[in-house]
Amino acid sequence: MKKKNVTARKGLWGMGVKDWIWFVICVLLAFMCLFPLWLMLSNSTRTTIQIQQIGGAESLLFSTHFFDNVASLLNKGFDIFGGFFNSLFIAITSTVLCVYFSALTAYGFVGYQFIGKKVLFAVLMATMLIPGQLGMIGWYQLVVDLGMYDSWTPLILPSIASATTVFFLKQYLETTYSKDLVEAARIDGAKEFYTFNTIILPISAPALATQAIFSFVYAWNNYLPPLMILNSSSKYTLPIWIHQLNADTHEVDFGALYAGLVITVFPLVVVYLVFSRFIVSGIALGGVKE
């Protein structure tokens, strides 16, 4: 017992020289990641005049105007709270649909054999490769032809078909999927769908959590499609409101804008913190142990 204690306490804070080197490198990398974001934070505490006028190192110093900026943001007659909840609704439903159906599709490819499978998969892969921008025109035309403009449906429904998510989950499933598990369930009389929900989903948990984060971030930050099709301000998402601040070329309230950006980023950090726990506990849930 004593021996164990000694080995555990080796080095400073339990870290040897090698570990410390890595630690320093990690810290430097973290610093590099945070630096621009620090600027975003510090700008959200300064007034527009200060932001526009004072560049250089001073812009890193926090000032005291954060709440002024927030107040300014809320006083513009923008429905920030409405936008916030709209974004939340759209992001959550998109994420749920995306992750669930992508897992379903991925399992369809991994766990079954059927005619035309290879072709369909090739098509799926091909869709990932198509440049997003140009589909914009056709997409807008479609939305308008279907009469779906000024509604959230065209923003949420397409998340069912997310090729990259399917691709990722399929790849992940290939490393964790075992025929035996499923065979066992079938012998026990379980229906396929039930198997999917009770066995496949849990073993994919880390992958699902990861993709849930990405999907949520993407849906949350998605700006151009909602702008193009939404007309009623009651339906606006948060990014639209934030970008409105940027609209008036000569009167941009940068203080409010940065405060808005910070507010926009905040829920995403929360989502990430919540879901990253699942990635860790997913190992315990997953049927990886044989």
């Binding site: 369809g108 198509i130 479609l142 397409p158 396929e192």
Partner: peptide
């Protein structure tokens, strides 16, 4: 079942993409 599982993806894909 495999076919049914991948169907929703392709239906939505056909329409929106």
């Amino acid at each position: 079942y495999g076919f049914i599982f991948v169907l929703p993806f392709f239906v939505v894909f056909l329409i929106f993409q």
